[in-house]
Design a protein around this nucleic acid. Sequence first.
DNA 1: AAAGATTGAATACTCAATCTTA
DNA 2: TAAGATTGAGTATTCAATCTTT
Lengths: 155, 155
Amino acid sequence: MHLQVLYPFGMSSLHPAFEQAWTRLIRAERGLVEAIEAELRAGDFPPLAWYDVLLELWRRPNHRLRQSELQSELLLAQYNLSRLVDRLEGAGLVRRESCRQDARSRWVVATPAGLALRETMWPAYAAAIERHVGSKLSAEEAAALAGLLGKLLGR
Amino acid sequence: MHLQVLYPFGMSSLHPAFEQAWTRLIRAERGLVEAIEAELRAGDFPPLAWYDVLLELWRRPNHRLRQSELQSELLLAQYNLSRLVDRLEGAGLVRRESCRQDARSRWVVATPAGLALRETMWPAYAAAIERHVGSKLSAEEAAALAGLLGKLLGR
DNA sequence: AAAGATTGAATACTCAATCTTA
DNA sequence: TAAGATTGAGTATTCAATCTTT
């Protein structure tokens, strides 16, 4: 096949389509996150990481999750999550509770203020996604993109 | 439909395909960058940001670029690039030169050590991309992904 | 020993202010 | 005034070490 002659697979080469997909993946993610977070900041909302925590908690029974579960949901390092939860707790959006079943663990529980913030934040967030993603892809293209990214994620 | 109850279409809602594409874009980018950077770190290589700078310089005549040009190429904030270049300069990989044409500007020039590092780093980087991206998508899928991401980037 | 979580110290990033030259 | 770049101070992230419980 033609491209394989120009860029044979081997020790140190890479098909250009992979390289381009890789560089664009990084640029698209960073550019869009920056643009969307700037819009949220302009609306006096906290960073997306705060939303992510509140969303995970909101989805669960009793709006609570063990830190270790939050950690694996959000793909965060343990020490990173520990300090993120510190900040949310300091802002009164979550509280920590000790865990009967396993005293090593701690629950992270959304407070009413945390749930209210997530609810207020969602329309602004959705509008920003609509503006930056929805305006550039059709629904079919978005579905195709989600499918390809799913493969990268092993789904 | 269930999701429409949670996220009805309207002023502040979003087609689920956009939401899924968005969340997967973030997860795929972060997971892959983390995995690939971990491999490079294990091979005693510096962060990808260093590679990005050295690559841009390598591509240019005389292996040099104004800081402001590097900044727009790499989509970095000015203060961020300033300190990234400080670190590369401290490691002897680039040097700064004053600019005759516009004394406000400074050139960033790759040193022989910087060019050599980029060259040594590429096979390891390419192998990591191959392992984490090439193994999960066909070349056709990678090209389709690059095309969709290009739309998101306005290309 | 391993899992869950936290912390001190070092590094990196961000915001706003600053400096120089165009 | 604006462009290019840098810097001090504050915030966030990272690494390694630590603590408690399983």
